[in-house]
Amino acid sequence: MIRRWPKAPALPSWVFDLAPVGLAGLDTWLNARHNTPYELGAAAVATLALLLRRYFPLTVLAITLPSLVISQSVVPALIALYTVGFRYRNRWLLTGCAAAVALGYATPWPPMLEVSHDDALLGLIYATMTAAAPVFLGMLTRTGQELSARIDEIERAREQERRLIEQTTLSRERTQLAREMHDVVSHQVSLIAVSAGALQVGAPDAGTKEAASTIRELSVKTLDELRHMVTLLRASGSQPTELTPQPTLAELDRLVTTSGIPVERDGELPGDLGAPQQRAIYRTVQEALTNARKHAPGARVTIHIGHTAAEVEVTVVNGRPVLPTLSLPSARHGLVGLRERAELLGGTFEAGPTPGGGYRVRLRLPLAAD
């Protein structure tokens, strides 16, 4: 299980909006004695512009650049640059914004005609490092939030998978118990009832007939109770719940729609498929979509359905992952169960990676299987 540090209490959003403004205002106030009124005005405009940094990060960064050049107030531009690094992924855009801040930081004010090469080089190095820090910090913060969201999603998926496994195991045990009660216990009780009836008819005395009649009545009542229990067990073992949708093709469109990933589907299934074939196809598509969401986030999934007079084929292919993935342990029980289900129906099941870095699942079932 993934262990994480406990989350700190969430602060109101206005705290994160006003804290940078207060920090920039403090920077302006500390440099007030070194700035002219014109420079103070530019610094104040840059500071107030930070209130809109969440909505117009690039515009706010452009507003802070004049203050960065003409005054000693550096904090507003660095905060605006951090917001740009957090909001955008384009490396060329981030490089250009960082270069603009570095150039504004390295430009002397008022302009100096004579600057030694060593001083200019040192100033450029310091300016580059100063501008790169907020960009990388913004990217790091964004990556941390995305990673935290992915971990939460994985934990929810694993918890749901665990509950599905528990329900599947319970359903299998109930079905097996119902089968044993029907095939073994009910058969033996039926033999007892038949034998008791024969004894009742051919008994030589009234006491034996009465005992045989009692045994027969009890056997019949027991058979009725057994049939009732078998019905309940099978119903509770196969009744759909909110975690296990009814495994029929009638729910296949809903499964695809609610999968949360982009899916393309082509082809149609024959209309005379039996319940076992429908369940096998449904479970195959369900498992393939679940694996694509866990192991190939952001990838597009294609479902191809085809059939001939002899067999039906369902192929599910996902592309390579688009978003960052996490390495997760997997026992591949789902694929093993799908292969066993296909073999029981006389079909075949194949699963494996594609040359492009994706994954393919293919199910073939004979139409004559029942």
Rank of each mutant, 00 (worst) to 15 (best):
D17K: 13
A196Q: 05
A310Q: 15
P297M: 03
P12N: 06
P324R: 01
Y359L: 08
S213T: 14
A10N: 15
R360Y: 06
L58H: 04
G237N: 06
R332A: 13
E155N: 05
P6Q: 05
R3C: 09
H295E: 07
H295T: 02
L61S: 04
G319F: 00
Y126S: 09
L344M: 15
S238F: 11
D152Y: 02
W5M: 13
D27T: 03
R227G: 11
R360H: 08
P20W: 02
R364T: 14
M229F: 14
E166N: 12
A98K: 01
V322H: 08
R265Q: 09
L30K: 10
A331R: 15
L345N: 03
H307F: 07
L233G: 02
S171R: 10
N90W: 08
D119I: 08
E311S: 14
P270G: 03
K7W: 11
E114S: 11
A309I: 09
P134A: 05
G358I: 00
G144A: 15
C97M: 07
A235Q: 15
R3A: 11
A351E: 00
R54M: 04
S67Y: 01
E350H: 12
S190D: 08
T308P: 01
Q200N: 10
V101P: 00
V314F: 04
L289K: 03
A250Q: 14
H117Q: 15
F16R: 15
G356W: 06
A198M: 13
F349L: 02
L18K: 06
H182K: 14
R91A: 12
S236T: 13
P204I: 01
L140N: 12
E251Y: 11
R89S: 11
A80L: 01
Y105C: 06
L124G: 09
A99Y: 00
G337E: 14
T214P: 04
W109P: 02
Y88D: 05
S171W: 06
Y82H: 09
L50K: 04
L335F: 10
G271E: 09
D224G: 10
L367P: 04
R53S: 04
V184L: 14
G138M: 01
Q160W: 12
A99K: 03
G138L: 06
L191F: 07
P366A: 07
S116L: 00
L113N: 14
W109E: 06
L48I: 09
I154C: 00
S327H: 14
A43W: 01
R216H: 07
V194M: 13
V256E: 07
Q188Y: 11
A46V: 04
Y88A: 08
I261D: 00
L345D: 02
R216S: 04
L273T: 05
I2N: 05
V101F: 03
A178I: 03
D17H: 09
G22W: 07
L252Y: 01
